[in-house]
Amino acid sequence: MRSHHRASRRRERLGPPKVELNLTPMIDVVFQLLIYFLLGTSFAVGEQTFRMDLPDRGGRGQVDPFELDDSPVVIQVLGSGRVYVAGPWQGPNRTINLAEFLEEQRLDRGGLLPTDTPIHIDPNPGVDWGEAVEAFNAAVLAGYHSVGFAEGTARAGSGR
């Protein structure tokens, strides 16, 4: 009886009880989810890249005497979906046939060109960039590793 009395007096001294929601675990979980989605999300949705190394041919002072002089295959992009591939063959006239043609010319497919043959895309100045990239894509799609853009003899890149 006495102990019950003492307990109720202590409760009176402490005041009314407070009920609180502990939000800390929820915030912890939210933070974990945030990190997960940040790591898994790309802000450049759908964007992809073609890799291309751009050597500075104009500034080259030393010439490697052991470097083989690979004559490149030059693909002229004429505009309106037309291309011209200079060489000892009846090349395709249209960009849509370019990948198939280049693949047939690969050494491992019975053609004459090793896959490291430099492919130079040479768009006409008035050709839009999208069409130039289309030809670049065709060469990469055909399996060549050294594809770049050419401007006269000044520039050539290699990439995929």
Binding site: G46, Q48, M52, L54
Partner: peptide, 14 residues
Amino acid sequence: DGVRVNLVVMNEHE
């Protein structure tokens, strides 16, 4: 080997 350049394109399927 020169500057590594990435030509950015859009992949509609992606």
